[in-house]
């Protein structure tokens, strides 16, 4: 089976700081890949380069059989095939919860309002927020906002879902609901690349754990391999902080 996403020797610098130093990674369809690593190891930057929110300095990124690092590729078209959820939800405060969810359907895919709202309400129903469809996001708790952001990202059925530390800004008691939704999506076969510090969750849901350190992939493997018997001293040192 061909890969949904393939990165070949990707490099990225901000000024003189080299954030990604040659990343190669392949993600198969229905696979859940979890990126772990210290803050500043390049997890967020990696996710952003996949979504073309950051241009890369070298290497190639393939989405399906298309080289999306080619500057002639229309970035907007690529982004509409990839969903991303950010740490701070980034819901649009001037739009209702439902309009947030249906924005891409209506204004990127050109679905008419009635059909888009039906799909939007189904998604909100699923996360138990249908009764909040017409209110503004500031009425929701952090966990509710983040779940809304997740269904906003999957409303257009993207081929790939990127999750960038989506529980880091939440109170501990709100994390559970958000992770439960991610687990559901993973069980349904959504292809996911996520950066997280939730090691217990990573161990349970991930097909593969990728440990990033200073912009390189130091170690990767199944959760039992990486968590159970890490080969690299750096990985052991990093994981020890979570025990």
């Amino acid at each position: 089976m061909s890969a949904v996403l393939r990165l070949e020797d990707v490099h990225k610098s901000f000024g003189r700081t080299e954030v990604l130093r040659g990343i190669s990674l392949e993600v198969a369809a229905h696979e859940v890949v979890v990126l772990i690593g210290a803050s500043g190891s390049g997890k967020s930057t990696l996710l952003r380069t996949i979504n073309l929110l950051e241009p890369i300095d070298d290497g190639r990124v393939w989405l399906g059989d298309r080289d999306i690092s080619d500057p002639r590729v229309r970035a907007d078209a690529v982004r509409s095939r990839i969903g991303i959820v950010f740490q701070h939800y980034n819901l649009f405060p001037h739009l209702s919860v439902l309009d947030n969810v249906t924005l891409a359907l209506r204004h990127v895919q050109g679905v008419d309002r009635a059909a888009a709202e039906q799909r939007g309400l189904e998604l909100l129903e699923r996360i138990g927020l249908a009764s909040f469809a017409r209110v503004f996001p500031d009425r929701l708790s952090g966990g509710q906002q983040q779940r809304t952001a997740i269904v906003r990202a999957i409303a257009t059925n993207p081929e790939l879902l990127l999750l960038d530390e989506i529980t880091s800004a939440l109170d501990p008691e709100l994390v559970g609901d958000v992770l439960a939704l991610v687990r559901e999506l993973a069980d349904e076969g959504t292809t996911i690349v996520m950066a997280t510090h939730e090691m217990a969750f990573a161990r349970e849901v991930a097909d593969r754990i990728v440990f990033l350190d200073s912009g390189v992939i130091l170690e990767q493997g199944s959760p039992s391999e990486v968590f159970g018997a890490p080969r690299e001293p750096r990985t052991r040192e990093f994981l020890a902080r979570f025990l």
Partner: peptide, 25 residues
């Protein structure tokens, strides 16, 4: 800027982002 980022990540172009997300706010 995160508002613009979120809009662009959904596939909205420069003008739609300006019209639907940035200008109203």
């Amino acid at each position: 800027p995160s508002q613009r980022l979120a809009a662009r990540s959904l596939g909205l172009g420069h003008y739609k982002t300006l019209r639907l997300i940035v200008m109203p706010q």
